[in-house]
Design a binder for these strands. Sequence first.
RNA 1: GGCGCUAUCGUCUAGGGGUUAGGACGGAAGAUUCUCAAUCUUCAAACCCGGGUUCGAUUCCCGGUAGCGCUACCA
Length: 489
Amino acid sequence: MLYSPVMLRVRFAPSPTGFLHVGSARTFIFNWLYARRNGGTMVLRLDDTDVERNTDASVNSIYEGLRWLDLGWDEEYKQSERLGLHRQIAESIFQKGLAYRDFTPAHTGDSERSGALQTWLFNPGMRELSRAESDRRVAAGEPFALRFRVPRGTGALVRFDDAVYGEQVKAADDIEDFALLRSDGMPTYHLASCADDVDLRISHIIRGQDHLSNTYKHVLIFEAAEGKAPQFAHLPLLVAPDGSKLSKRRHGPVVSVTTYRDAGFLPEAFINFLCLLGWSPKDDREKMSRQELTDAFSLEGINRSNTVVNFKEPAATPEETFDPKAVWLNAEHIRALPVEDLSARLLPIVREAGFQVTPERMLKVTPLIRERIKLLRDVLTAADFIFVEQLPPYDPAELIPQKGDSAMALKALTRAREVLATTEFTHDGLDQALRAAAQELGIKAGQMFQPIRVAVCGRKNAPPLFETLEVLGRETVLKRIEQAVLEVG
RNA sequence: GGCGCUAUCGUCUAGGGGUUAGGACGGAAGAUUCUCAAUCUUCAAACCCGGGUUCGAUUCCCGGUAGCGCUACCA
């Protein structure tokens, strides 16, 4: 086993207030890649301190999304089970004089202040409260919030070096006395997060850029708690085509990972796509396997500006919903999959749609559609005619070949019926027999093939004819041609 | 309002003081196969604006503008 000089540990810390969305998924992936690339440890931590908004359903949906990604993690924690640790660290910060009690009644959800017209730094009168006075009010049972005592008027600077955004500096005077503990004794996000990062020995915090400004507070906590902050790397945000941040309410299911799964994305393609948003391998590669991504990943390749996920707002067809590049990448990955593998992934989808199909049969069908599907679910529209017993009705006019008429269609079909009754049902056998038949009838091969194709597939656009006939088998083919003959005649 | 981050084709991006500003997706046109798809070829498409530094800025600096983030006893 290899040991890096410092133990590299990263974490993914979602708060279970909704489904796993694409931005979180990307954060998870980047953390995972970084850990794997450098022989580090990947920690999953559920940041569930917000009792009001956390739900079990959300926890499950996060697991569901992560499981589909199929990347795994090494250690797992629940923040709600570590409240003692958080309070302990808050207490030690308080004892060092770096925090103070604020007895001002809570302003939870006070929208005047967030969105704010003026800068709020601290509640007057509380910072200077003497320890004796503070203790007296606690003894009297007054509730209080614990606030960090940010240095004031000293010209102090808070700084950290971000692996993506570079050196960051902010005047302590511009940072408000943020809360560590709420008046009900529960830790705030800032405290809980940093306390856990300290305790779990997290070495690198890779997270969304929406935390960049919060990081100054975190640095203050880290320094108060253990003297040293971990390395930070902030990721550019994923945004909607209109530049707004992704939200389920505004943008619908396209922001949920399970939507991609259900639509028939391959997890490796989805991962590939997400990696290309805000990160570049710096060469011209686009389609990359999990291993290639792991090998190529580095923090230096991460961008600094917001990235648009180019989906269609209220989508028309399912395929048009998604970023075209994601769809293209998925098709690329589908075509790169061994037939056996692809077939195995297609089978459950086909069965779930109500078709009785054996793995052996699916294996035969797969090559026909492999280059014609972009999402796994497309198998249902690409190969439906193979699975159905009875072809859905189609327009008999479709049977008429290019530059031909119904007489030609009839001629082709009746001849085909004869020929196919005896020909060997292999690609080459069918090829020869049908081409010969066309020649006999004095029509072009295409004019011969199209009526057959429509008769057999129920539409003009379908997989190559000979392979299709072969897979369908003589019985079905003859039956469908017979039916088509009746339609034309 | 305050503080901060960002700015290359429609989108994802490469590049970087002197380049025909490269690639990909998507779009258009063509080639090709029995249709479709795949594949191949070609085309259209970008350095936010204004100053400064410089022999020379898309690149470096400053300002503006725009977008985004933070500004909660949410995370």
